[in-house]
Design a protein around this nucleic acid. Structure first.
Length: 508
RNA sequence: CGGGGUGUAGCGCAGGUGGUAGCGCGCGACGUUCGGGACGUCGAGGCCGCAGGUUCAAGUCCUGCCACCCCGACCA
């Protein structure tokens, strides 16, 4: 709670020139559209006000600005560490995919054809064969793997790449769906079907742990239905998050590719039993879409709220001074910055041309987890003010305790954010009595609906047509098996015995 | 691919019946300020999306393009 002391900002506005019209005051607040009024606009406002990205002259292509890229770098590094810890190595494959390669796997090309960008010319010369700009790299990577894999001793082949890909989407949204986006894609080859399945699930769980630990984004891991799976996969697993407007976000996918690609691209090895066999493969990826997920999982009316573990700036120091106290306060602030540097990503905002109040708002919009205020009165008392972004609480901390308090506070914020998001997710996960209620919920509250499903793809399509809700996933048990529907559960649509209880939601 | 919207200063916008461009914010200088979006003075900043046309004269009227944004059907 906010302690009542003399240090609290005065409520009077006598220092604010009386020429400020009420209209202008409102405008400041209006810079971020309230979530309740227009969630989509809120999201765009936050991206802009938090300085994460900007539009360009190319449709659907954004600039990721330094602050947004810093966020992505932290996300990337946290995941990259996990990818390496699980035995994978990074490599880099070409941006271009010859048409003949892309076409080898029929489902694959069918799935991506409408959104592939093609290179047809080099200078003024028409190319013999047009080149796709990778929408994903299965084709190009598999064509190379066929050279690399000779023996069972070459397996498993565990490779990841960080790259950009292009998908010419009709509708784009900053971070969530852009024409070009950044991602990582893991591509592995295995000796046995079991091993590939194990890898698929291992990476699914890596994604889940990563999203929950680093992004404070609670996840429902599960299996995709036939309708929703990756073009060319045998199974697709997903991590699904729930956004602030009750829509689900597919935050990452892990595919068991079986032998679909190895057969088409001729990735064979000589096994110990001297038989030539096709490898079993997986692929898995997450993208800059995660940035959008973080915004929509945690943001509030004042803007972005970043989980400390991935925040580019964890602590911003805002010095508060007048002309006569300026030097003393700034000196103390610099001292604090130096002292805190080893324990947190800290930034001193020593801008001279804006007021502390402006800085407070500015950094709140940008979602910095902790603001440290230091002014003459604090220095007198040898203390500072710590303000939490997530709860907007203020704490008074003696300076000698700061080095101990701060890391704890960051941890607390991180775990509170996860818990808050989990509660929101749980509060917005419903069971419904019948299909009418299903429709009502999807129309109004949205969120996840956990409901019985008979397993028929046609039924899934019908539900989608009627409610815009899709099956986000079939949940898994601890052994990663799809959980069969409890005895007596019926399909929400047909009333037939349900095969599974599945998560429905409208999605991004 | 449909539906809608918008292109005028960095951003947000205004510019009835045509007459050579303005407001707010922001930006720069100086001064006063500074514990929740400070104020004053001065100042910089425009091929009015592009191309045609009508006209003595087009930001404004006409035609045709182009681009981007938003909302829907398809996808990470």
């Amino acid at each position: 709670m906010l302690p009542k002391t003399a240090l609290q900002p005065e409520k009077s506005d006598n220092h604010r020139g009386r020429k400020v019209a009420p209209k202008d005051e409102k405008k400041f607040i209006k810079e971020i559209t309230p979530k309740s009024e227009d969630y989509s606009q809120w999201y765009l406002d936050v991206v802009r006000k938090a300085d994460l990205a900007d539009y360009t002259t190319i449709k659907g292509c954004m600039v990721i600005k330094p602050y947004g890229f810093g966020l992505w770098e932290n996300i990337r590094d946290a995941l990259d560490k996990r990818i390496k810890e699980t035995g994978h190595q990074n490599a880099y494959f070409p941006l271009f995919v010859p048409e003949s390669l892309l076409q080898k796997e029929a489902d694959h090309i069918a799935g991506f054809a409408p959104e592939v960008a093609w290179v047809t010319h080099a200078g003024n010369e028409k190319l013999e064969e047009r080149l796709a700009i990778r929408p994903t790299s299965e084709a190009i990577i598999c064509s190379i793997y066929s050279k690399w894999v000779q023996s069972y001793r070459d397996l498993p082949l565990l490779i990841n790449q960080w790259a950009n890909v292009v998908r010419w989407e009709k509708v784009t949204r900053l971070f969530l769906r852009t024409t070009e986006f950044l991602w990582q894609e893991g591509h592995t080859c295995h000796r046995t079907e079991e091993e590939a399945q194990e890898e698929t699930l291992k990476m699914l769980r890596v994604y889940q742990e990563f999203a929950e630990t680093e992004l404070a984004m609670p996840i429902i891991p599960g299996l995709k239905t036939e309708n929703e799976k990756f073009p060319g996969a045998v199974f697709t697993y997903t991590i699904e998050g729930l956004m602030g407007d009750g829509r689900a976000l597919q935050a990452g996918t892990s595919h068991n590719l079986g032998q679909h690609f190895s057969k088409m691209f001729d990735i064979q090895f000589l096994d110990e039993d001297e038989q030539r066999k096709f490898v079993w493969q997986t692929s898995w990826g997450v993208s800059t879409r995660l940035v959008g997920g973080v915004i929509m999982t945690h943001g509030d009316e004042n803007g972005l709220i970043l989980p400390p573990r991935i925040a580019p700036i964890q602590v911003v120091i805002v010095p508060v001074f007048r002309g006569d106290t300026r030097d003393a306060v700034l000196e103390k602030a610099r001292e604090l910055e130096k002292a805190l540097k080893p324990i947190a990503r800290v930034k001193l905002d020593d801008r001279d041309n804006v007021t502390p109040g402006f800085k407070f708002n500015d950094w709140e919009m940008k979602g910095v987890p902790v603001r440290l205020e230091i002014g003459p009165k604090d220095i007198e008392k040898n203390q500072c003010v710590l303000a939490r972004r997530d709860t907007r609480e203020k704490l008074f901390v003696p300076l000698e305790e700061l080095a101990a308090t701060l890391p704890e506070l960051l941890k607390t914020i991180q775990s509170d954010m996860l818990e808050r998001a989990r509660k929101f997710r749980d509060d917005n996960t419903r069971r419904v009595a019948d299909y009418d209620e299903f429709k009502r919920v999807m129309e109004n509250d949205r969120g996840f609906i956990l409901a019985g499903w008979c397993g028929d793809s046609e039924v899934e399509t019908k539900i989608k047509e009627e409610t815009k809700a899709t099956i986000r996933c079939i949940p898994l048990d601890d052994a990663n098996n799809p959980i069969p529907a409890p005895e007596g559960t019926v399909c929400i649509y047909t009333g037939k015995p349900a095969k599974f209880e599945v998560y429905f939601a409208r999605s991004y």
